[in-house]
Design a protein around this nucleic acid. Structure first.
Length: 559
RNA sequence: UCCAGAGUAGCUCAAUGGUAGAGCAGCCGGCUGUUAACCGGCGGGUUACAGGUUCGAGUCCUGUCUCUGGAGCCA
């Protein structure tokens, strides 16, 4: 293993510049990825006499730029990787396309893989950030975390270990590299520990490092959003967010849904769904003159990809979108953000029942995925945030959702004998307290409410035969409220026009949307699911600002 | 935007209108296969900001800012 020194890095900070390599374009572009800590000995000019061959050089660059190309990890048949790139692949991972060319270099292993070991290991390297250090006579304990899992690895450093003279600087928050042997831990608390054979400080963290060993409030951690992923809870949060984003795609791809990238900039407020952010190149962001502006008309950030999604469903049958959505509402609650991610499936040849089926199946699948693939992180949320979390998720996975029409829901609320702050009236939206009563007390389960009065729902929802209600549906979950809102769309041209008139909309603004009904119209349905609300439900986190890496809310766009 | 609450050491919080304190973090020392280790010592403050009442304001009053909870809107 080469010590990670800048001198070993071609074109690196010390000015060692192997000119011959530059001519071949070896110097990475300014926009390229950051250089690794150490370069393979095979490519290090100080440790080899000949310059690397062009294939070697290209291989290295390629591997570094596309670390995902590591595949076929095979724990039973470990083949130490040639590339010490720190890209997150375990020792033993093997590239699908490339065979190691030269040499074997000790490579950094992620702590998650290290702790999953089934037998002791010699000569492993881990890199991470110090959570705590406990000094004993003649040796020290380090708790090291690299974010790959919730658990820390306990490192035992004897006083005589190379690098141990730097131990006083191994304070909470410092980054470090440890080489050592993985051995069974003689003490309770962990299965394995790492007996260090060499330790090196990478970056110190002085006394101003704001994260302590002790717990912090979520409110304080929001003020240091750049550091909070280093805390246990937020590390778990954002690992889980990543996995669930993958689960969303997997869910739809397995069901033959086509992923559609609907526009983020849109030229008209097609849905009337609240305040929009203006997009303009005009100075001062003036409201009026769209003439001379970039698009020649007022442009905004999207509040929904639904209408565009419908056009693709009416061509590719089943589609979904998954992307950022923006609302300029001055909403200041634990459930609202100005920028959030929404999942919007749309299905051709589908009615409201099929829509509800998909929505409920989706929620259940996400809960099941989290339970199966994020168990360690969920355990943390169960301990710290919501001790009923696991039971609730299990319940959601196993039990069918309750379905109730809006009319019946109103009746249930009126007959509950409960004194609500807001009266329960047919023709009004369900208030938060009403939704909470239904899911948390009456049904004690997620519930799908359908067939709402047409007055309180948008124009595109299909009018039922009763002439009073539309085929809308909301999936409500305990603690959060509405997670999914959807509908069967109005596919009848004349009825759609009538709906527009009913809602006082100008049909000319929706000419392309109406065209879908003019040419080969089909019944179709879909819904919008808030990704963050889903995450809140799956983790028990009560505030949307704590499930978004860098939340945007009124008055807050720091970071 | 509306209603309510809060703002004191780096963090979490105390302090009848009368000398601003503790735990953790930091520094120094001790002890220990330790498990947000433990024990002792030390340093640490424009009490959010601006006015006002008072002999005296962290505390009472007014305004501003920020945060939190609830509501509306919704996902």
């Amino acid at each position: 293993m080469e010590a990670p020194s800048s001198a070993a890095i071609p074109n690196g900070g010390t000015g060692v510049t192997p000119r011959g390599w530059q001519a071949g374009g070896f110097r990475q572009s300014r926009a390229g990825p950051p250089r690794p800590q150490g370069w393979p000995a095979a490519l290090n000019q100080e440790t080899r006499s000949s310059r690397p061959s062009e294939p070697e050089r290209r291989l290295w660059v390629w591997r570094h730029r596309f670390p995902l190309s590591y595949r076929n990890s095979d724990a039973d048949n470990p083949r130490p990787c040639f590339w010490p790139c720190g890209s997150g692949l375990a020792v033993g991972a093997r590239c699908a396309r490339l065979t190691p060319v030269v040499g074997i270099v000790s490579m950094r292993i992620l702590i998650k893989h290290l702790l999953a070991a089934t037998e002791p290991r010699e000569a492993v390297t881990v890199k991470g950030w110090v959570r705590t250090r406990r000094d004993a006579k003649g040796f020290s304990f380090l708790a090291l975390n690299d974010g790959s899992c919730a658990a820390n690895v306990q490192v035992v450093v004897d006083a005589g270990t190379p690098g141990a003279e730097q131990l006083p600087q191994f304070t909470t928050g410092a980054s470090a590299e440890i080489e050592g042997r993985l051995v069974p831990s003689p003490a309770a608390g962990q299965k394995w520990e790492l007996r260090a054979t060499r330790v090196a400080l990478i970056g110190a963290a002085d006394a101003t490092y704001p994260l302590q060993k002790k717990g912090h409030t979520p409110e304080f951690l929001r003020t240091i959003a750049h550091l909070r992923p280093r805390s246990n809870l937020f590390g778990a949060m954002f690992r889980l967010r990543s996995r669930l984003a993958f689960a969303v795609h997997q869910f739809f791809q397995e069901r033959d849904f086509v992923y559609v990238h609907t526009p983020i900039i849109t030229a008209s407020d097609c849905e009337g769904a609240g305040e929009m952010f203006r997009v303009t190149v005009l100075p001062g962001n003036r409201d009026e003159p769209a003439r001379g502006d970039f698009f020649g008309k007022p442009a905004f950030l999207t509040v929904s990809g639904q209408l565009e999604g419908e056009t693709f469903a009416c061509a590719l049958s089943n589609i979904y979108t998954f992307g950022p959505t923006f609302r300029a509402e001055n909403s200041n609650t634990a459930r609202h953000a100005a920028e959030f991610w929404m999942i919007e499936p749309e299905m051709a040849f589908c009615d409201l029942a099929g829509d509800m089926d998909l929505g409920e199946e989706f929620i259940q699948a996400m809960a099941r995925y989290a339970l199966e693939h994020c168990a360690e992180d969920l355990e943390l949320f169960a301990q710290r945030v919501d001790r009923h979390l696991l039971a609730r998720l299990q319940f959601v996975v196993e039990r069918p959702f309750v379905r109730v029409s809006y009319t019946d829901a109103i009746r249930i609320l009126q007959q509950s004998g409960r004194a609500f702050e807001f009266p329960v009236l047919y023709g009004h939206n369900l208030q938060s307290e009403h939704e909470r009563f239904l899911t948390e007390e009456h049904f004690q389960s997620p519930a799908t409410v359908f067939n709402y009065p047409r007055e309180i729902k948008p124009f595109y929802m299909r009018l039922n035969d009763d002439g009073r209600t539309v085929t809308a549906m909301d999936v409500l979950v305990p603690g959060i409220g509405e997670v999914i809102g959807g509908a069967q769309r109005e596919e009848r041209l004349e009825q759609l026009r009538a709906n527009m008139a009913f809602h006082r909309l100008n049909p000319e603004d929706y000419w392309w949307y109406t065209d879908l009904r003019r040419y080969g119209t089909v019944p179709h349905a879909g819904f919008g699911a808030g990704f963050e609300r889903l995450l809140m439900f799956l983790t028990g986190m009560p505030n949307i600002r704590d499930v978004i890496p860098f939340a945007r809310t009124p008055g807050n766009a720091e970071f």
